[in-house]
């Protein structure tokens, strides 16, 4: 599904240069469940941003479905993020001004889906993550676990091919984190590719594919037995 070739990311801070990613080459196949692991500052988020086309690499090539998307115009990038990617963040990142339902509807606006359909689909997705009774609640009225479930519903709103989750359980107690993990695993079983950053080794073990980063370098990428790779 996607392939990175010698991806580098360098931050130029004037007198010093920070190499956040150095010559990363890897491939993630459709249906993969990949975990990115590594110590803090090793470049995990940076890699997620590059994969999600929120950031651009300073070197190397990025192929998405064999298309070189290293230098795509902004509008195309936005369209790919909107239609093909779903983002889940550590700090949920829901809009506090919008209800749970409206948060889920938002990405569909950029896909040009009419309001009636947006509502129907948002209701269905919230039902799937077990929040049918919280649709009109504002994020501030929801628990952390509930907020992250709204965020998952939002990431699914345009039926993405790839879910990018940056420490989705990092702000949650372990039991709530487990609920999130189960949802992500069930999505993967339905065929959605999932790339997840985690600090939790047991979560890493459950992934089919583990990418280890250290100081911006890929130090190992291993396949676990139960993966469908």
């Amino acid at each position: 599904m996607l392939r990175l070739e010698n991806i580098c990311k360098q931050y130029d801070l004037g007198d010093t240069k920070v190499d956040a990613l150095k010559n990363i080459s890897l491939e993630i196949k459709r249906g993969d469940y990949a975990a990115i692991m590594g110590p803090s500052g090793s470049g995990k988020s940076t890699m997620m941003h590059i994969i999600g086309i929120l950031d651009s690499a300073t070197g190397g090539k990025y192929y998405l479905e064999d298309y070189d998307i290293t230098a795509l115009p902004d509008k195309e990038q936005a369209r790919i993020r909107n239609k093909h990617f779903g983002f889940i963040f550590q700090s949920f990142n829901l809009f506090p001004e919008l209800s749970a339902m409206e948060n889920v509807m938002l990405p569909m606006t950029y896909a040009g889906i009419p309001v009636k359909e947006r509502k129907e689909r948002a209701a269905k997705l919230l039902y799937e993550v077990g929040l049918e009774h919280r649709m009109t609640h504002l994020p501030t009225m929801l628990s952390g676990g509930e907020q992250q479930r709204v965020a998952i519903a939002r990431s699914l709103s345009n039926d993405p091919d790839l879910i990018l989750a940056d420490e989705p359980t990092g702000n949650l107690p372990s039991d709530k984190g487990e609920e999130i993990m189960e949802i992500l695993e069930s999505l993967n079983k339905r065929g959605v590719t999932v790339v997840m950053v985690t600090h939790n080794p047991s979560q890493g073990k459950r992934a089919g594919y583990v990418i280890e980063l250290r100081d911006g370098e890929l130090c190992s990428s291993s396949t676990n037995g139960d993966s469908n790779v």
């Binding site: 929120l54 902004d74 509008k75 936005a78 993020r81 239609k83 938002l106 950029y110």
Partner: peptide
């Protein structure tokens, strides 16, 4: 600022 980042992650172009 952060909201703009989220909107872009969710599919807003710079023009949007």
């Amino acid at each position: 600022k952060k909201n703009v980042g989220i909107l872009m992650a969710l599919g807003a172009s710079r023009k949007d």
